[in-house]
Design a protein around this nucleic acid. Structure first.
Length: 109
DNA sequence: TAATTGACTTCGC
DNA sequence: GGCGAAGCCAATT
């Protein structure tokens, strides 16, 4: 059944899978790409339930270049992002602005 | 069915 | 610069 929630989850997963290596996207960006610019939290929930392999959840970070959660293992997330070619510090991504995956429908002034 | 939680975001103090 | 509160969406209990 294509429940709205299922579609949302499917959409989020599809979008996250579309994130190219070496780039990252924020929960808000993924939510926006999914059609719900305010569903950043919902994206987090979907990620937590992401039983779908091939989904680079570690490429999804919080806004402002912060790491976010990743199950609490932000150290692991930091290592993965660094392996992707990103400059990550203990709390945020240094070149986040340059590595941010542009997927938003409208550019923000 | 209703209420709570959660890997968020943003503004205010 | 750090902490707190409010707002939004979906999943879970």
């Amino acid at each position: 059944m294509t429940s709205d929630a299922d579609v949302f989850r499917r959409r989020v997963i599809a979008i996250v899978r579309r994130i190219p290596p070496g780039e990252v996207a924020t929960y808000g960006d993924v939510a926006d790409a999914a059609g719900y610019p305010r569903a950043a939290r919902a994206v987090g929930n979907v990620m937590k339930s992401c039983s779908t392999p091939g989904v680079p959840c570690h490429r999804v970070v919080a806004a402002g270049g912060r790491l976010g959660g990743y199950g609490g293992n932000e150290s692991l997330k930091r290592a993965l992002l660094r392996a992707e070619g990103l400059a990550v510090t203990t709390k945020r991504i240094t070149n986040f602005a340059d590595r941010r995956w542009r997927n938003r429908r409208s550019s923000r002034p």
